[in-house]
Each structure stands twice: as structure tokens, then as C-alpha cells.
């Protein structure tokens, strides 16, 4: 692998990367949650971010989404700088995400949740909506079709009219993925999608992640479930105390003595 490292870090991937994070810093009252994190994600990969609790994984996601305002660094997505943009503009650039602690719209049905996911794909004016003009009616039908498409990909179509709050936990997490997919993102951030799932559900999740990747969506994954991470990821980033500890393929990471010492604690071989 060392032979592949080119003199300039930016050209280490063949084409320009989809996402390039450089020197990202974020502190909370003196505590450095992110201390100069840099990495690049090439299009079409499943890229996992792992690390012990408090390593800064969710902070990284929240900084990428504009929920936090990092003090310095750069987040380039398809050659566009995201740092400083409000969240809804970042979403409009083609980034969608799920949340570690569920952020479903419990006051809506499953279908409506996923229809909100399509928000960016069409525009309705207040007046047209209130008067329900014919074009709004057609638009509603289109939104519904798109949402059902995303639900079908996530095998949730039969739950469409159910209220989101009445679903079992595993399905709620799946609705979040469907909702994020409905936006047709180029980059999908999954924040601990396997947390709280049983083994069968985790296996199904692995299939789903692979299917999403194969449909051309790049995935950034934060996850603690090592068998899933090692089985599904193309590359990994290991964070520890807000800094990058290692970066590489699953095989490289599992062989890295620093990672083994800091995080994996000896158990190296994972397979699903």
C-alpha cells in the first residue's frame, strides 16, 4: 500500500474525492472534541468512522451537517465548501443523514415521514398548497410515488399508513433510512444504524447498506458493531480523542497495532 501513496495527499484517490475534510476543529468550552481531523471519501464507497465513545464521531457528523460551527478547517463536498452553510443548504447540496437517537416525526405516518424526505425534490408555494391547485395535486401524487419507492427499497411499504410512533424500534430506524434515501442524496450519513437492533435486523441492515451503495449512493457510517463495520465498509477512519488514529481498509485497520491497542483490545478477526 505504501507504494500507492502519492506525493500530494489530495491526489491519493484517482478522481477528486466526493468529500474532503481538512483540519476540522471543534471545541466545547475548552474540550477539544475534534482536534484537526482530515480525511477524504471517494464516491461510491462505504466509508466507516469508528472509535471509542467520546472519540468525536457524532460531533464530526454534526459538524458536517452544520449543526455545530467548527472553529477552523474545511469541509469540501463536490468541490463546494460546506463550512458555514446552514443545515438546510447543506442538505440541498446532496447530503442526507439518520440520527443516533431517533429523530422521526412521530406526529406523522410513515409515508408522510418519507414524503418530507423528498422535500428538496419539488417546490410548492403556500398559495398553491392552500388552494390545492391541480398542479399541487399532481405534485402530491409524485411525492407519494417517490416515497413509496424509498419505502419499498427499505421493505417498509406495508407500514406506509401506520403512525411512525407506533412502529417497533428496529423499523423506526429503517424509516429514518428510507426518509434519508427519499432525498436522493449523493452522500448518506448513517449514525449508529445498528444500535439497538437484534442479530437478524443487523444482517438485514448489512444487506440494505450494500444495496444502497450499489445504487450509487456514497455512505459515511458511524457504528460500534464491529462485525457489521468490517463486513460492509470499503475504508475506515479511526478516531480517538478527536484525532485521526488510523485510516485504511478493514484489513489494514485490523492489523494496525495502534488501533488494536487503543480500541479493539486484542480481538482482531471479525466476520459476519
Amino acid at each position: 500500500m505504501t507504494a500507492m501513496i502519492a506525493p500530494l495527499p489530495l491526489s491519493s484517490t484517482p478522481a477528486s474525492p466526493l468529500l474532503a475534510v481538512t483540519g476540522l476543529e471543534q471545541s466545547f468550552g475548552g474540550v477539544m472534541a475534534l482536534a484537526g481531523v482530515s480525511f477524504q471519501v471517494a464516491e461510491g464507497l462505504v466509508y466507516a468512522v469508528i472509535g471509542p465513545n467520546g472519540a468525536g464521531k457524532t460531533t464530526l457528523f454534526n459538524a458536517l451537517c452544520g449543526f455545530y460551527q467548527p472553529s477552523s478547517g474545511s469541509i469540501r463536498f463536490t468541490e463546494r465548501e460546506l463550512l458555514g452553510l446552514p443545515t438546510h443548504r447543506i442538505a440541498a447540496c446532496g447530503i442526507a443523514r439518520t440520527f443516533q437517537n431517533l429523530q422521526l416525526f412521530f406526529n406523522m405516518t410513515v409515508l408522510e415521514n418519507v414524503m418530507v424526505g423528498c422535500h428538496l425534490r419539488t417546490k410548492t408555494s403556500l398559495f398553491a398548497a392552500a388552494l390545492r391547485l391541480p398542479r399541487v395535486r399532481r405534485q402530491e401524487q409524485r411525492l407519494r410515488d417517490w416515497a413509496i419507492e424509498a419505502l419499498e427499497l427499505c421493505e417498509l411499504a406495508d407500514r406506509a399508513t401506520q403512525s411512525a410512533g407506533t412502529l417497533p424500534y428496529g423499523l423506526m430506524k429503517r424509516v429514518e433510512i428510507a426518509r434519508a434515501l427519499a432525498a436522493k442524496p449523493r452522500l448518506l450519513l448513517l449514525d449508529e444504524p445498528a444500535a439497538g437492533l437484534n442479530d437478524t435486523e443487523t444482517l438485514a441492515l448489512r444487506d440494505l447498506i450494500t444495496r444502497i451503495r450499489d445504487s450509487g449512493v456514497t455512505i459515511l457510517l458511524v457504528e460500534h458493531h464491529m462485525p457489521l463495520v468490517m463486513g460492509v465498509s470499503d475504508r475506515l477512519l479511526v478516531l480517538d480523542y478527536g484525532s485521526v488514529l488510523a485510516e485504511g481498509t478493514p484489513a489494514e485497520i485490523q492489523a494496525d497495532p495502534r488501533v488494536v491497542a487503543a480500541y479493539l483490545g486484542g480481538a482482531v478477526n471479525y466476520a459476519v
Binding site: Q103, F105, V116, A180
Partner: peptide, 25 residues
């Protein structure tokens, strides 16, 4: 009409989870 439209769903989304709503654009 308004409630059962894209505008109305956006409203309800803001109520349900402001973070998620922003993330949906």
C-alpha cells in the same frame, strides 16, 4: 389543504424534530 401538502408536512416536521426537518432541507 395546507396541512395535507408539502408546506403542511414541513410545518409538522419542524414540530416533530427541528434537527431532522433541517436535515431534510
Amino acid at each position: 389543504n395546507l396541512v395535507d401538502s408539502q408546506v403542511g408536512r414541513a410545518l409538522r416536521a419542524v414540530h416533530g424534530s427541528e434537527f431532522a426537518a433541517r436535515m431534510m432541507g
